[in-house]
């Protein structure tokens, strides 16, 4: 398991903290989803947790080892797959695997065997001797995953690993996470694909503007009143009358171009359509989505922003 304790990171005094007093834990045998908008602080938190970035204050404890003070011991228990894996581009996958294996006290023969098995397990058989720069983004993620499995770590941190993957790739990662969970591993998964988080996560940590705003369990999420939903209305032309009317329906309204998103909508979408037509506002498209997590997410953000 690992625990992030009051982690704060300030890149620039002028800009304020990128994350502020972020605290949560990921227990063994658990998948924790990590959800937030772009720039919310997910990647900063994960980079601190894996030890490539230093916290301004706070710390991260990995299986009892402080990542800043006992980095080598702590890092042995971490498998990290970043959103954009960045290895020496001119290195061949095979030699890079064996080079990195050296940091884990894995002897040469064992490194050869493990590298071969792991590259095969992530579907990179036949590509071992290709330079990493020739890999697609998906292949790089698979390679990064193979590297993260080198030491059979107890903790995994997957940062937007599903981005840019094809359905087969997403399925592969999903099954891998479930398999690791069955092996009692602790997994943190950050993703924009909320349906995936909803499918696999036991708990979800919501982060917004660098602060953890909520941590919910799967059961708590399920208990969330499911009648609410997100209503997306695309108008022919956006007008003040239209916006004013839609905002009056309650919930949080977000206007993006000709689109209005009501994230906390309760009611009948056809009724809304009728009202708009009556008001002489042409509607191009109207759609109601009962996505529990997404709605929950927007609710939280709305509340956090209005509280501020």
């Amino acid at each position: 398991m690992f625990e992030i304790k009051a982690a704060t990171k300030v890149f620039s005094a002028k800009q304020g903290p990128a994350i502020s007093a972020v605290s949560f834990d990921v227990r063994n045998g658990e998948i924790v989803g990590f959800v937030g908008l772009n720039g919310a602080g997910k990647t900063t938190t994960i980079r601190i947790a894996v030890g490539v970035s230093l916290p301004t204050s706070g710390t991260v404890v990995i299986d009892g080892h402080d990542i800043t003070r006992e980095k080598p011991e702590a890092s042995k228990s971490i498998g990290w797959v970043p959103e954009l894996p960045n290895f020496e581009p001119n290195a061949k996958a095979w030699s890079m695997m064996r080079y990195l294996a050296g940091f884990y006290n894995i002897d040469r023969e064992e490194a050869r065997r493990k590298s071969k098995d792991l590259l095969a397990s992530v579907g990179l058989s036949g590509f071992e001797n290709r330079k990493i720069r020739t890999y697609s983004q998906g292949m790089k993620k698979r390679f990064s995953l193979a590297v993260s499995l080198l030491s059979d770590p107890q903790n995994f941190l997957f940062d937007e690993v599903l981005n840019g993957l094809d359905p087969e790739g997403i399925h592969f990662f999903r099954e891998l996470m479930r398999g690791q969970k069955r092996m009692n591993k602790a997994i943190l998964l950050s993703s924009h694909i909320l349906t995936e988080i909803e499918n696999v996560a036991d708990r979800i940590v919501f982060i917004h503007r660098g602060r953890v705003i909520k941590i919910v369990t799967r059961d708590e999420l399920a208990a969330y009143e499911g009648e609410k939903g997100v209503l997306r209305i695309i108008l022919q032309n956006i007008t003040d009358d239209a916006v004013s009317y839609l905002k009056s329906l309650g919930g949080t309204a977000l206007v993006q171009g000709n689109e209005v998103i009501l994230s906390d909508f309760r009611g009948d979408s056809s009724q809304v359509n009728s009202e708009l037509v009556k008001k002489g506002i042409p509607v191009r498209e109207i759609k109601f989505e009962k996505t529990g997590l997404e709605q929950y997410f927007f609710d939280l953000i709305g509340k956090a922003d209005s509280a501020k």
Partner: peptide, 20 residues
């Protein structure tokens, strides 16, 4: 080059200190 392109982080994530 490794430092400025971020390649060094792929090594730094291993059991090694920044100083080491």
């Amino acid at each position: 080059k490794d430092r400025l392109t971020g390649v060094l982080e792929s090594v730094l994530a291993r059991p090694v200190t920044k100083r080491g």
